[in-house]
Design a protein around this nucleic acid. Structure first.
Lengths: 340, 340
DNA sequence: TTTCAACACTCAAACGTTTGCGGAAAATAG
DNA sequence: CTATTTTCCGCAAACGTTTGAGTGTTGAAA
């Protein structure tokens, strides 16, 4: 068990000063050719690697970025992480992942912890509880300390920072318009309650398409799920009660519950009823019938977020502050839950 | 933009020395009651938080653990992370996640990077490429430096360290025995090639059950998938060609491909053919029919791994070295892809 | 021989902490 | 009133780096 080589040990071993070693390894012209070679050879032989922590302290930057998400056991978030990780690694950054479990307190805790030197900046999607409380002081505080933050997916206007979002409204419109184009007349919507921003936006897209196509909105055909744990039975009742020829669901789970309910009602997907989901996850691909969905391109979102963050981190301080919001386009992936 | 309070600034502001501030904040009895109160009040008012990096350097420990996995867009791994994160957080540790993308080189790179001071220890599941190459020098080197490592899921005997695995053989036996008990006579196996250790072990479980029940092994009923990308068609051909009354698949995807193929052949699941998968993911729960599977309890594995690692990290140096392998039991989750 | 530049290297401070030790002032004892 | 203890605080080193300033030696020019 050899306890990790330091500059000091090399210096002692080779009978030079620490600074000589440091400079030699960094190819400074201050050091004579032969000592330089000698030191480099020694370092190589014993596989010297500078200590990251010491470097972080000295440079006042850690080269790591923190990503805080509500939960990790969720396809969309993992694709985002994947995207972040990819560009972060490319640019020499590490990624440290924290989970808020959708709890406000844990989000605050994580943020505080990482803000004390552990990371140079954050990529974050807000916890559900945070959005309900509308308490963002932990975020504004971190931003005030000069730490760059990029919000994605679940964002909020009150916070001034870079953001990466998808065109929820447009995405929903693409989906619903697609259904209309295929001849659907009575399109059901399975959404979430309105304080979940994505639910609200996707609902808006749904309404806009109906309006654009002069279809009257039937409030009975709109279901807003309050309690996720109870979504299956709620959806079943909704489908049983209403007579629809198409369903637009704001996520995968709602979509497959709808399909299940439709099938149990004795109808067929897509022959009798078409179904479109949102979020292109594992489930959509593998389900039978496979789901036509609006793909959110999580990986691309993560990559964009990482790029925004790193840009800000490596920006010269003289450049002036400016916040961007990049919108990642959604796309409709046609599969077997809709008529072709 | 206030640039983060340090001890030095507090000291200057209150006209005392840095050490006085430090000691006061740590409630040292060396400091007089009134100055102590004054300093603590000031620190609280301006929300002082010690700099983690400086602490890490001083204490020579970072209170973060690294987890390196082959890919994150994979249900099992996310549950493991979730488990790790939970107990790590409980004990005041951070988790930094790196992906090897199943590449040997990236695994080495990540390991080296994190080993240079960024983390106190590792939790790791090996990249496929690493297992093929059988080159573990990067791991042994890190271990030799005195950095604790816990391997999980994809482990290897050559490396001496703590390990967390599942009882692959027993899990497979549970599944296959279950099929036998339900009256299956011709049980197909859909597995992977043998250098993937889990494939090999699960195959062994399958064989043992057949032997224990005096069923003759029919090599035609065993499919070993080489190329994941081509698994769907391979499985379809396999099902079309062979007449089975049950299928045991070593993962979710193989299981649903089998179901799909069976259905396309005009047979019904579970009435005509029962199917059991391995790995209890999103897909198993949501698929129609939902899958009977062997659950791997990833979260529990992650938690165990984290506990092992932290134990080792906080162990007194005088205690002697010893490596444990904990086996996390699998359990059979009965759903609708098997006859009840 | 003196003067000065070039060279090769070392010193010391800094990043933000913690902590053993030493020291001055105040309190107590003799 | 001196001697000793106690109280309270500052100094400095340490963790592992980087880097500007400083120092000593050499060789060549004047």
């Amino acid at each position: 068990m050899k306890p990790k080589l330091t500059l000091k040990q090399i210096a002692r071993e080779l009978d030079v000063s620490i600074s000589t070693v440091s400079k030699a390894l960094r190819d400074s012209s201050e050091i004579g050719e032969d000592t330089r070679q000698k030191i480099k050879a020694f370092a190589k032989l014993y596989n010297y690697r500078p200590n990251n922590i010491a470097l972080s302290l000295k440079n006042r930057k850690t080269k790591t970025i923190g990503i805080i998400i509500p939960e990790i056991v969720h396809y969309f978030f993992t694709t985002v992480i994947s995207g972040v990780e990819q560009v972060a690694n490319e640019k020499g950054y590490n990624v440290i992942v924290c989970l808020s479990n959708n709890s406000f307190d844990k989000e605050v805790l994580n943020l505080e912890l990482l803000a004390n030197g552990s990371t140079d900046g954050f990529i974050l999607s807000m916890a559900k509880e945070t959005m309900q409380k509308e308490d963002y002081h932990h975020l504004t505080e971190v931003i005030n300390q000069g730490m760059p933050v990029v919000l994605f997916d679940r964002v909020v206007d009150q916070i001034h920072c870079d953001k990466v979002i998808i065109d929820d409204v447009i995405g929903a419109k693409k989906a619903v318009q697609y259904l209309v184009d295929k001849g659907a007349k009575k399109i059901g919507l399975v959404s979430t309650v309105d304080y979940v921003s994505v639910g609200k936006l996707r609902t808006r897209g749904y309404l806009e398409v109906l309006r654009d196509n002069n279809v009257e909105v039937d409030e009975d055909l709109i279901l807003k799920i309050e309690d996720m744990d109870n979504s299956e039975t709620e959806i079943k009742e909704f489908i049983d009660k209403n007579d629809v020829d198409a369903v637009f669901a704001v996520n995968e789970h709602f979509a497959i519950h709808a399909i299940k309910a439709i099938q149990e009602k004795g109808l067929k997907v897509p022959e009798d009823v078409s179904v479109i989901g949102f979020t292109d996850g594992e489930l959509s691909k593998r389900f039978i019938p496979s789901l036509t969905t609006v793909s959110q391109h999580g990986e691309r979102m993560g990559a964009e977020a990482a790029r925004l963050l790193i840009d800000k981190l490596e920006r010269k301080p003289e450049e002036e502050e400016s916040y961007k919001t990049v919108i990642v386009e959604t796309s409709l992936v046609e599969r077997n839950s809709t008529k072709s």
